[in-house]
Design a protein around this nucleic acid. Sequence first.
DNA 1: TTTCGTTCCGAAACCGGTTTCGGCAATGGA
DNA 2: TCCATTGCCGAAACCGGTTTCGGAACGAAA
Lengths: 386, 386
Amino acid sequence: MITNPSPPKHQPTFRRHSASGRVKLDELADHLGLSKSTVSRALNGYSDISESTRKRVEATARKMGYRPLSHAQAIRTGKVRAIAMVVNSGEPDRHNPFLQDFLAGACEAASAFDWTMTISTAKSEKDMLNVLGRLVEERKADGFILPRTEVEDARIEYLRASNVPFILYGRTGYGQTDPDSDTSWFDISGEAAICSAVTRLRAFGHSRIGFVGSDPKFNYSHLRREGYLEGLKAAEMPVDPELIREGARSRDEGATQARALLELDHPPTGIVFATDLAALGSYSVCAEFGLQIGQDVSILGYDGIPECQYVSPGLTTFSVDSKRAGERLAEMLIRQTRGEAPEGLRELGQAELVERKSDGPPRLTPEELAHKVTQLKNGNRGGDRP
Amino acid sequence: MITNPSPPKHQPTFRRHSASGRVKLDELADHLGLSKSTVSRALNGYSDISESTRKRVEATARKMGYRPLSHAQAIRTGKVRAIAMVVNSGEPDRHNPFLQDFLAGACEAASAFDWTMTISTAKSEKDMLNVLGRLVEERKADGFILPRTEVEDARIEYLRASNVPFILYGRTGYGQTDPDSDTSWFDISGEAAICSAVTRLRAFGHSRIGFVGSDPKFNYSHLRREGYLEGLKAAEMPVDPELIREGARSRDEGATQARALLELDHPPTGIVFATDLAALGSYSVCAEFGLQIGQDVSILGYDGIPECQYVSPGLTTFSVDSKRAGERLAEMLIRQTRGEAPEGLRELGQAELVERKSDGPPRLTPEELAHKVTQLKNGNRGGDRP
DNA sequence: TTTCGTTCCGAAACCGGTTTCGGCAATGGA
DNA sequence: TCCATTGCCGAAACCGGTTTCGGAACGAAA
């Protein structure tokens, strides 16, 4: 004591940290010798705070490790600095390996704005609206990401009526530019990918190309079918309704549709699938028919699920960058909640072709293929052990 | 005016819904003719509110669709009614198809308590602590689920020091009962599963059984290795260090370790893998060596990833119910944040054996297997096109 | 009738921030 | 010199709930 010549005077209630361990605004304020309203405005960039004061406040806040409680801010501002997404856990293809990538992208983007992400799941269509409703009513998020947009989407109606910001991962209404609609979205152009798949098969020399679509309730299913039709047109090939199948939501349903196509009198030598999962379903059918994928029949998928590279032969597919989708969606949604017009927040990305061994020049004509299929079917029927 | 004989008297500020559209506590209160403190206490089950009033309040609240804002409550109570989890997005086996199931379970359990779930991702070990720190400091959650516990886990140290409730998906310290530790956890007994895998192979008649572990930094890797040793002991088989491999984090690394085992002078005729992914890696090696899985060599996995049923032959594995894990973890964590002692919140579940075609009685002795491997290797080396 | 203890509710403080409003001092112009 | 701005900050209200505290009303005991 004696050795200290200048004991600090006027050190009023020097409780740097309160009992809770957190530094709160009051403490930061009287540590700075300012009022808490001044500190708050300094931190929030109000123009009526001098530049020097602002710097000092910011520096001290950082030094003391001050972090506002987001829910304390929310009570006055009405914004919780969080975005939410509710995923459907009841889908047949629910084992989506991309969820983690998608969340990684969305969370990283949100973190960059100092926002967080809350997530929930719904068991059914009806449950979806309940879950969404609870999140909205309790104001758990300032905006929503809506994955897997449907042609008729109840979520959109609800959120629009509730006047809550949201962004679509996908488009609605088959993707027609909907000028009076005020929704923002991000999507990957599945139609462009499928179109180029057809072009690619045509370039290989295929003359009959089939298409297996996905669940028609999802908007992307229609877009990809249109991409197929577009591809045929570009290649100046005729449209044969026989070659268009729908509703392959799962691997097994993909197998069913592939079988139907291959058992045609005039089967396609190349098949484009709307999803990888459905495309992988065709592998078992081809094995059953003794058809060599990539030679007897060419298969193309879409999504880029990891399994594609481990099947034999590897599945050529259009890979979607889910992480980037999450990033873009989160960023655009946050910007929307900050006041940007939804009309300006729309982006269309492209899937990336990953060439593997499941497609190539046709070894057989459709007639030869048909012959081989019926022959092998009869052969298998004759004796179980060839 | 005149025609109305009894104008409603005393109808003070009958603004059922304020401008915001939400019903707030004040409005509910003066709709009931009560003070907002009474209404609040009635809704929160205080004992100094008469039963009849409580009923009336609850009924009216439901009728008017009143929902308290969780962040408005949080400011006073300090509880945000949310749990959080941060997943590591930088792992080699990050394409975890179970995340969705896990989240579904956790979200459903949380919803049942009227809680929500916030999620975040971390790119690296260091980032993990940053992300966790931000969530803690902003008080975005009342408790944390820590997936994939490591032998030395920095997250645990941090949260313990911060005095924030958390629960482990997994155990620590190799799983020794750690009596003075006060952590709660839920886990699936990988050791019991692997042990029974050894027993199963022994019953098939295998005399040499190998084990391929996972990343030693994760606690489960050690537990499963101990399960393997336990299984050998139960079957009264000797421990051969040659048959124990470690560090197969991915499919490719699984392949590497499988190759090492099969190229032994005394190779195992059955191999138990700590993860399905690693086990699937062995398929390509067996194909390369011309070995028929399920006959020449038996393979057993663990996890129950969907791909197991689509490879040929189907992989016998121990399936983990991720959804249930999420449910249990969320529920136990919430109970912990409500004051229950962590010591009482521990649960060990069992994995379920799913029998497929990748294991069975050994067709070859280890010597014959070794012979076949070297023969085929030389054969392949002699000419690329057999 | 008085006193005491319950039962039940309202007034007001409180949580940790944000935002409005007004005032002081310095500045500029007349 | 005086008045009107302007720049900068503090006091206080406010957000929507929760919790403390005190007191009115009532019945039972004295």
